[in-house]
Every structure is written in structure tokens, then in C-alpha cells.
């Protein structure tokens, strides 16, 4: 059996957030506005946070990239009333966007806040925003960059999301599916890997098959001390952190 997972070595992480940028570009996750930030509606499949313990001057802090943990016992799958969120045989927790009714039950059930609601139509908002900016540029008699109107960027491999549904990290399923179809090797260091893993300049992340004893992830988990996020909740995350 294949069971995909990720190992994140926190000793290597420099907190540059290249993974977050790569994820946004790869999965065409909508760019958030200042209002979204204020209203806590950020779309961040991948985010980099700092956790700390203690009071100054005795503080210990560490930078942590957070993604969907693709749990072995996912609470989001358990609560989905329309079976839109499901766990694939290879361990990926995925969604059928066309089935989601937007009840947001998975969002309250996820202990990791890794699910994001589409408060508006991503594509419509994108077009509206750039049309407005182009108009303003025209008023000032400046050149309008061609990217503003003619190439609304969207990765053709990733389905677009309409307003009113929930979305989340997919472990770049389109890359994995493509690799399976083309018979390529999957997993770090020399195979196909998710965009965040590929983008990391410090080789913080390692992606691969947790059930394969020869894979890089298994080797890392054997050799180093590791933990999962909120293992006390019994969700069995498939993303491991090395400390």
C-alpha cells in the first residue's frame, strides 16, 4: 500500500515562506485583499507561523510551516454530510468540489484550521480587480500591462473553485496523478513532489511514501526524533515534524 506523507525538518526552516508563495501559484489560490486579512478570511493552504513558549528573556520560538495534515483519521471526512471530503486509498484527503454544499462543518471540525471558505467567486473578483486597476492606469495615461486583462492566470491542472464552497491543500494531487499516469517516480529527493517541497530552498520538506521502508521520509522518521501536530486528538496526521 502507498501512504503519502511529509516530513518537515524545523532545524532547516528559515521562515522565508517560499512554500506559501509556491502553493498559491501552483494551486491558483486566490490572492487575499487587506479586507480579507482584517476579517480573518485569508486563503492560505500553506502558511508559515511562529510558535513560542515562555516569557522574555526566557523565550524559545520556532518557525513552523503548516499545511493540511492529511490525517489517518480525518475529522473533516467524518463530519462531511454529503461525502464531498474523502480519504483516498493513497492517504490523500481530497474534496469533490462539485458536491460541497458549503455547510462549513468540516471547518469547525478541523483542529488545524486548514480549511478555507470561498466568501466570493475567485475568478470574478480577480477580473474585477484588474479591470479597475487597468482603468485607473488608463486615466493616468500609463501603459496597462498585458497580464492585467488578457491572461487571467489559472493553473489548468487545478479545478477552479466557485463561491460558497470550502477548499484545502491537496498535496498537489494533480502532480501525483500526472506522475502515476506517466509512470514517473513519486517522492523526494529525485521524484515528483508537491510545489511547496520543490520550492523550499533549505530542503526543509521531504515528501514520499510512508509505507515504503526505503523512501527518504521513512529513513528520516527512523533516524530522527519526530512529532505530529496535536497527536493528542487522535487524528494521526501524516505530516511529521523533526525537532
Amino acid at each position: 500500500m502507498v501512504r503519502y506523507g511529509m516530513v518537515i525538518d524545523l532545524d532547516r526552516c528559515v521562515g522565508c515562506a517560499a512554500c506559501a508563495v509556491a502553493c498559491k501559484a501552483e494551486n491558483s489560490v486566490t490572492s487575499s485583499t487587506p479586507e480579507d486579512y482584517k476579517n480573518r478570511r485569508l486563503m492560505e493552504w500553506n502558511r508559515v507561523v511562529t510558535v513560542f513558549k515562555g516569557k522574555f528573556p526566557n523565550v524559545s520560538a520556532s518557525i513552523m510551516p503548516l499545511i493540511c495534515n492529511h490525517c489517518e483519521h480525518p475529522p473533516c471526512v467524518k463530519v462531511c454530510p454529503v461525502d464531498a471530503t474523502y480519504k483516498r486509498e493513497d492517504g490523500l484527503v481530497l474534496q469533490r468540489y462539485e458536491r460541497c454544499i458549503g455547510c462549513k462543518y468540516c471547518m469547525v471540525a478541523c483542529p488545524y484550521q486548514q480549511r478555507f471558505f470561498n466568501f466570493y467567486d475567485q475568478k470574478k473578483k480577480y477580473v474585477e480587480r484588474f479591470e479597475k486597476e487597468a482603468e485607473e492606469l488608463k486615466k493616468e495615461n500609463k501603459n496597462v500591462p498585458i497580464t492585467y486583462l488578457e491572461i487571467p492566470y489559472h493553473n489548468p491542472d487545478v479545478p477552479s473553485r466557485i463561491s460558497g464552497i470550502v477548499e484545502k491543500c491537496t498535496f498537489c494531487r494533480h502532480r501525483i496523478d500526472k506522475a502515476i499516469a506517466e509512470g514517473k517516480k513519486i517522492g523526494s529527493p529525485d521524484g515528483v513532489e508537491p510545489a511547496c517541497t520543490q520550492a523550499c530552498p533549505a530542503k526543509t520538506r521531504t515528501f514520499g511514501d510512508l509505507d515504503d521502508p526505503d523512501s527518504e521520509v521513512s529513513r528520516l522518521l527512523r533516524s530522527r526524533r519526530n512529532y505530529q501536530l496535536r497527536a493528542d486528538l487522535g487524528t494521526e496526521p501524516q505530516v511529521y515534524y523533526l525537532d
Binding site: 511562529t50 513560542f52 496535536r230 493528542d232
Partner: peptide
């Protein structure tokens, strides 16, 4: 909710 038990998220 806390991500690592006992550690607070910054910001």
C-alpha cells in the same frame, strides 16, 4: 486551537 501543545502561535 494550539498546534503544538503548550506553545502559543505568534501574531
Amino acid at each position: 486551537s494550539q498546534q503544538v501543545v503548550g506553545r502559543t502561535m505568534m501574531g
